[in-house]
Design a protein around this nucleic acid. Structure first.
Length: 588
RNA sequence: CGGGGUGUAGCUUAGCCUGGUAGAGCGCCUGGUUUGGGACCAGGAGGUCGCGAGUUCGAAUCUCGCCGCCCCGACCA
């Protein structure tokens, strides 16, 4: 048990000016964290206690799933990353750490980086230490600080530059084994979030820079989330916006009978879909081809969508480029022959087709029969364009952004969208890293094979904030039992009375023996201050001992999540408290 | 990095437009009164007005530059 007067809980009446969302304000007001700089936070004692609780529950569930804890350095030789498969893509988010004191200034390449994640460390380790199928599968995890130079840190712990993450890495002999490991981790995640009282749903996700074959994100539904979840409750479909698809292609008009030969017509000054939709052209957006140019690994490529659709940029990841970005007008003109606004991909109109890394078309353009597209000549467009006959396509793919209301790919029911906070992510990686680092094992036929990997992350510090975002009211935080910094607060209104403090200690002991952690508010403050602080911090169970009640032989028991106050005779109090604690653990 | 905001005591802020003594609330310290939902009275400490130039007799206030922080976008646990 701890005495409040001896502890350190700096609460605030007012929200700091730089906090915007409820959970961020409460983190600071309740004395859980303080900001050092952008995206950098000190965990105060109360905040640290919550972090430790979350970490411990996470640890228990992972160990139950067979994972093994270790701890890797936070400082990585840059060499590990340079040898890995994603140096080009990952270096932007990594903090460089160059050795100090040797008199050299600013080496071209960093000597060390601060680890944003640990594939580049664990894979060489496993390569060196595990060589036989007999030693597989293995799944290693750690809980520790990660560093990412986020372009824009946001909302307190929600997106920080330094944060606490659980990261795990599985190594299997076979693809089936890797899928088993993946599902074991998915189940462990579900158990973790359930135990700490957080509603998190698994949604299909894009693999992003990680690479790999499939992936789920664990999302906490919240208005302040960074991500859009596309879902339908009935069918159970749920996917991150970056991954979401819809069953939108009822008819395939790729080879529709041409309405005529391709024909150029002047469109002076028309550089937008909307302008072509307007009079005098009157071409509906869903009959236009939108032609976008990107640069992938240094080479331009073209993406074609319906005029009415938006590109979901993350989906370009499926094309296999390490890095890509929108092309500039200067890069586009020499290759296609026109400025943006008159671009197209009709055969014969592209000035320098050999310079292109490909022409990729979204499936939905199949809905466009005789369409209109740019002529690759400024101020001109083409009509009667047929996909099969006229477009110089490399291949089709899924590149468009799904819109709410479109049919679910599973059931055809309308898709919905809601915001979510990504608190966890699991990837089936395949052999991307084991190939690169040579992590192979020998099977019982003396044959060598690359290990099949998975990687898994839970943002512990972000989860802390998600818990608050999901559990608060106008008065403050409402901690789930298993996540609370202390489960029980004994609020002593008259700490100068020895019998009040004696009773408080006795009840605290009883609660501790039942398995709770207890804080005693022994401060010489007025009752109002104590109650406000208790509600602000949100201890799940509050016992109130006052001089007035003591005379009548009663004290009060109150759950933070409930309105009513339960009066308990002092003689029964210890037993009632112990029972309440046990009941709370049973329900948690 | 692009767009928008903002920076005055530990916290929340007024003052800035229209240049002339830096003000309040909370918190803190002292004394007293109070004591079941952020008490009251009296006294007190606490400020390079983000930093640097410039304009001016005089700059928190006007001008320029820089920096920090917040919000929107791309990125992520």
């Amino acid at each position: 048990m701890k005495l409040w007067s001896q502890y350190f809980i700096p609460t605030l009446k007012e929200s700091p000016a730089d906090a915007e969302i409820p959970s961020h304000k409460l983190l600071i007001r309740a004395g859980l964290v303080r900001k050092l700089g952008g995206g950098l936070y000190t965990y105060l004692p109360l905040g640290l206690r919550v972090m430790q609780r979350l970490s411990q529950v996470c640890r228990e569930e992972l160990e139950r799933a067979g994972a093994i804890e270790l701890a890797m350095p936070h400082l990585h030789p840059a060499e590990n990353w340079q040898q890995g498969p994603r140096w080009a893509a990952a270096r932007e988010i990594m903090f460089r750490a160059d050795s100090a004191g040797d008199g050299r200034r600013g080496p071209r390449e960093p000597e060390y980086v601060l680890g944003p994640t640990h594939e580049e460390v664990i894979t060489p380790l496993v390569r060196a230490e595990i060589t036989s199928y007999r030693d597989l599968p293995k799944n290693f995890f750690q809980i520790g600080t990660k560093f990412r130079n986020e372009i824009r840190p946001r909302f307190g712990l929600m997106r920080a530059r330094e944060f606490v993450m659980m990261d795990a890495y599985s190594f299997d002999a076979t693809d089936e084994g890797a899928i088993r490991s993946y599902h074991a981790m998915k189940a462990a995640y579900e158990a973790f979030f359930r135990r700490i009282g957080v509603t998190a749903i698994a949604v299909e996700a894009d693999t992003g820079v990680m690479g790999g074959s499939f992936s789920h994100e664990f999302m906490v539904p919240a208005e302040v989330g960074d991500d859009d979840v596309i879902y339908n409750e009935e069918s159970g479909y749920a996917a991150n916006r970056e991954k979401a698809t819809s069953a939108l292609v009822p008819a395939d008009l790729a080879d529709a009978p041409p309405a005529g030969a391709v024909e150029e017509f002047p469109t002076p000054g028309v550089v937008t879909i909307a302008a072509l939709e307007a009079a005098p052209y009157a071409v509906p957006a869903d009959r236009q081809f939108k032609t976008l140019v990107y640069v992938g690994d240094g080479k331009p490529f073209v993406v074609i969508l319906r005029g009415c659709d938006e590109l979901e940029e993350a989906k370009l990841g499926s094309l296999g480029f390490t890095v890509f970005r929108p092309a500039t007008a200067e890069e586009i003109e020499p290759v296609l022959g026109a400025k943006p606004g008159s671009l197209g991909a009709v055969r014969g109109t592209i000035r320098n087709p050999d310079a292109l890394a490909g022409v990729f078309a979204d499936h939905a353009i199949r809905l466009v029969g005789n369409g209109v597209t740019g002529a690759n000549r400024d101020g001109f467009h083409l009509r009667h364009v047929n996909i099969g006959r006229d477009l110089a396509l490399t291949r089709f793919g899924d590149f468009r952004r799904v819109r709410p209301g479109e049919p679910d790919p599973k059931s055809g029911a309308p898709l919905k969208v809601r915001r979510g906070i990504e608190v966890g992510h699991i990837f089936k990686l395949g052999t991307k890293y084991s190939d690169k680092f040579g992590a192979v094992y020998t099977d019982d036929q003396k044959q060598n094979h690359p290990m099949v990997m998975g990687c898994y992350g839970i943002g512990i510090s972000r989860t802390l904030q998600a818990v608050i975002e999901q559990g608060h009211d106008a008065d403050g935080i409402i901690w789930p039992w298993a996540a609370a910094p202390f489960q029980v607060l004994v609020c002593v209104l008259d700490p100068q009375l020895p019998e009040a403090m004696d009773l408080a200690r006795a009840l605290a002991t009883a609660a501790e023996q039942a398995g709770a952690e207890v804080l005693i508010d022994d401060r010489a403050e007025r009752p109002g201050v104590k109650f406000k602080d208790a509600d602000l911090i949100g201890f799940p169970l509050r016992l109130t001992i006052g001089g007035r009640g003591l005379k009548e032989g009663i004290l009060e028991l109150k759950w933070r999540a409930q309105k009513d106050i339960i009066k308990v005779p002092v003689a029964e109090a210890a037993a009632r408290v112990a029972a309440a604690v046990k009941e709370a653990w049973a329900k948690a």
